[in-house]
Design a protein around this nucleic acid. Structure first.
Lengths: 167, 167
DNA sequence: TTCGTTCTCTTGGAAGTCCAAGTATATTGG
DNA sequence: CCAATATACTTGGACTTCCAAGAGAACGAA
């Protein structure tokens, strides 16, 4: 898994698809497989960069979201909706963030079911440092040209919209 | 997490990035986040389609790889290299495939360390059905236009090559 | 030959994802 | 007003991923 392969294995799979007659499916298959592989590469890199900060990418996203929220607090339900993860995944992340003292669960003033999430002072500090690090080490070194990044985002926006992700 | 959001949360994050002055990082950040979100959507869809076949996408990929191998068998090391997953992930998948009788671990004729993977007859049968289903329900309904699929694959190929994935 | 190194694979552990089911609180309709 | 329904969150379980650390086999050099 370390040294580069001679041939792109996804391109090989695409050829197999074509030679078996699944011509129309070959290109989407290759694109989808490449998306999954790319996500896994970026996730590994992000987690490695965040590890010294005691974070994972999933938990960083929670901090970043809270850091941007105007009121400074957000119900779990809203956070999981914006992060587009299952409520149980967020419960998991918040448990760990709370244990390490980066986030607080507060009671909602009028709705007893709702828990409001809030950054602690320490959470704000860690967020700032982690974000700087991600900007420097990941987003500035994305291995995407400027136009590839733009094209990629646009293609995936069309896809996500068509899949009912937003709008 | 079910109903579509009013605004694309990734586009919102990109705006936040820009308004905080991380202008150059905003677009790669959005693209990378979108890649992760897209991977998660496709993975969920693929797993749902494969569930009736008793498979997950990870295990399907193992079957598909073995189905394409010329000799009909492949060492674990080679399989994990081609699938680009950690050896331990493959061990996990193969354990489950072996338990359900879709794959066999065989001794290597000359190297005592190596285990050769082989599809069983049942494995071939399940592979064929699962692959047809994925082609019909996922790859033919990818929510990508033909040219978007091609562009996406090319952009990600450049990225993966630059990241040392192959070549 | 044999001792140390390298290679292949597995085990155990941490973390993430989801789903299904449960608890507690709101809301709503008869 | 109270029972039925809906919402918000958590728990438990299945699955994936990785890493670190091991066991066993092969290889290479003294």
């Amino acid at each position: 898994m370390a040294s580069p392969l001679k041939r792109d294995p996804i391109a090989q799979a695409r050829e197999q698809w074509i030679s078996h007659g699944w011509t129309a499916e070959a290109e989407p298959m290759a694109a989808i497989t490449a998306v999954m592989r790319t996500a896994s590469i970026y996730l590994q890199r992000a987690d490695a960069i965040l590890k010294p900060h005691g974070l994972t990418f999933a938990r960083f996203e929670v901090l970043a979201l809270l850091g941007f929220s105007k009121r400074g607090s957000l119900p779990m339900s809203q956070a999981s909706e914006l992060l587009q993860v299952h409520a149980t995944s967020l419960t998991n992340s918040v448990d760990r963030l709370e244990t390490t003292g980066l986030v607080r669960r507060m009671a909602h003033p009028t709705d007893g079911r709702t828990r409001l999430l809030e950054l602690t002072t320490e959470g704000q500090r860690v967020l700032t440092q982690a974000r700087d690090d991600l900007n420097k080490q990941l987003f500035s070194q994305s291995n995407l040209t400027t136009s590839d990044a733009t094209d990629l985002f646009e293609i995936l926006s069309r896809f996500r919209k068509a899949s009912g992700d937003f709008e």
